[in-house]
Nucleic acid binder design. Sequence first.
DNA 1: ACACTTCTTGGTCAAGCGTCTAAGACGACC
DNA 2: GGTCGTCTTAGACGCTTGACCAAGAAGTGT
Lengths: 208, 208
Amino acid sequence: MARVSSAQRRVELVQAALRVIDRDGVHGATTRAIVAEAHVPLATFHYVFRSRDELIRELIAYVVEQEGRAAEGTLQSATDIRSLLRTGLQAYFDLVVSEPNREQAMFELFHYALRTDELDDLPRLQYERYHRTAADLLAAAARQLEITWSVPLDELARLLVTFTDGLTLAWLADRHDAAAARTMDHAADFIARFANPPTEQINQGAHS
Amino acid sequence: MARVSSAQRRVELVQAALRVIDRDGVHGATTRAIVAEAHVPLATFHYVFRSRDELIRELIAYVVEQEGRAAEGTLQSATDIRSLLRTGLQAYFDLVVSEPNREQAMFELFHYALRTDELDDLPRLQYERYHRTAADLLAAAARQLEITWSVPLDELARLLVTFTDGLTLAWLADRHDAAAARTMDHAADFIARFANPPTEQINQGAHS
DNA sequence: ACACTTCTTGGTCAAGCGTCTAAGACGACC
DNA sequence: GGTCGTCTTAGACGCTTGACCAAGAAGTGT
């Protein structure tokens, strides 16, 4: 086997573990399944990781960060905030539909971390990141369409994440595409209502 | 050990398993942990259940049904639909706060069933029941306040479940009570907007 | 050529897992 | 009181799991 730095091996194992979890769930991600997926001997695992949970911790950080980054470039252009939101939700939903196991894995990792003493600080960080990402997107949307939000950004971001979580769970359960579309319609309507259109008076007042 | 019908033993084991899952998660609910909790010998398990997954199947059915029943008596009285919805959400949320592990266990069971071939019909049934319960509550609320809903009941029920799921997940992650309260405020506002107030004209038209 | 750090890896360990067997005890019925 | 279906239970089975050890190979600096 090629000689590789242990930092590099860690990355390889994390990515292999992610593929295993996609396929077989967190439960199926045993040390042996992971090293088989990565094509390395079993003993390599505990050379680079102290324990299985140490890998899971690194994996969650990796995948949450990756999901946050993926959301950044998502924002498209639109003439009104409602359709901008609706399109964004659709883009997220299309991702879920195309890779259902990925989002399922995120939930499983979340619940696994909640139950594991050494990892129970991660769920908070995971949702902090989700909320921050949502807030960034909503702020960028406001900037693009020159509107302002009538409620605090944090509050709106949390609502958006509430919608995506609930939407995803129900769809994973019944795969009801049409119902999911209706939910997204309502979610877009709902959040769009918090947009204050740019009034000339306010702008004039600011400039004069 | 007292001689008991196998039907009765099944119930005992299901309830013991539920306590174990509350405490240690689905992962911790091994056959040995369950029989220890129920104070019966290990061999009893496979006398009354063909397999562990057969117990899990019965447990999910039991607990989903129980949750549905619990929701029935929840509806309180109020003068307007908005506060009725807000109070109902609060009642649900108080339950989650008082027994966080219970709701966490529901999610874990959901994801476990999704990953298990013999159980993969259960998530659909689980959410059917949730949606039906939500629809029943919304219908009862409409009856009580003599309003009608401006969108199909199924659609509204799904939205309500979307909110409760998303609300619960975020709270389990960060235990942010105030943020959860804001989310419930918005959810109540949102759904209340779909209420058509009873117009005298309609009533008169129906009676004359 | 030498020492020294870093990486590789076959083999092994104890613990825990779901499941099954087979022998016996109980209690209702004839 | 004997028979027969139902329930009880100790013990064992084969297998998987996370973790560890110790020996050696590969590369690096002197």
